[in-house]
Nucleic acid binder design. Structure first.
Lengths: 143, 143
DNA sequence: GCTATAGATGCAAAGTGTTTGCAACTGAAA
DNA sequence: TTTCAGTTGCAAACACTTTGCATCTATAGC
């Protein structure tokens, strides 16, 4: 199963850092690995609370920060005030609905010419990543 | 002068909406038109305060919101908590330094292949805008 | 110019999302 | 089992933004 391998990949990457695997972090990794969207801290916290009722928001914030540093997840920019995290760290681009605020991955083939896109650095600039954001109206909002 | 025409363009666009031009808004438009970077609300407020000491942050927030709705400026996404505004509403792309957090416009020609970039909508998706963000290390931080 | 009024302003308070200090706790290695 | 770096939960502090409200002001009509 795809999902299990993603979960295992995250767990191993975490453990390989020599950090202790607590109950909270294991559950958090499971929650993250099970999602293909871009949950807010609050959504993640809610889901985690169902399993570990005493868990605190602080732990969620701190763990997400840690996971982001380790490259297990990515923080994605969103016009909403709240931070969102993306469990998919491979290169991909996003679609943002300007109506409902929904943020989704661009399906393969949705962006023509993206492979040719390249940053031509002048001076000492270094480019690490190029990300594309398409703004528009999603299926639901256009209907 | 380029700067004056940008200023006039903003003023006229604002007045053409039939909204009253207050002292605060005129000064705010002048501050915005004078910048080519992406100031935070706080930076804008500070600059405005020098001219109008009694001005309140609330007014700055409300006016920036209004200007954004009118399309005079654009809000740009930035990982920092604070909102940033871009007085340049023409299509252009951004460079974000992952080290110092500096956000700048990509100079012309810095992005190869961007003209071919197109969104191939499936279903009812509509694309209004495609924006590219290059992350990396800026000149200062790479030095 | 004077008046009426939609819209703008400033203040204080409330809201929302996030971070921090700290004492208690826990996973993993010895 | 002991040890300790690292983690946790709580409460409080923070940073940024929004809101309610009474007052004020730019503009249009007289």
């Amino acid at each position: 199963m795809e999902q299990i391998s993603h979960l295992e990949r995250m767990e191993r990457a975490y453990l390989s850092e020599g950090l202790p695997m607590t109950t909270q972090r294991r559950a958090l990794i499971e929650v993250l690995a099970s999602r293909k969207d871009h949950p807010t801290v609050d959504e993640i916290f809610s889901k985690l609370s169902r399993r570990i009722p005493e868990v605190s928001r602080t732990t969620v914030y701190r763990s997400l920060e840690m996971f982001t540093e380790l490259g297990l997840i990515k923080r994605v920019e969103h016009p909403d005030a709240a931070a969102r995290f993306d469990p998919n760290v491979s290169e991909h681009h996003h679609f943002l609905c300007t109506n409902c605020g929904g943020l989704s991955d661009l399906p393969a083939g949705a962006l023509r010419g993206v492979r040719r896109l390249a940053y031509v650095g002048k001076g000492k600039h270094t480019a690490e990543e190029i990300s594309v954001l398409v703004r528009g109206s999603c299926d639901d909002c256009s209907a």
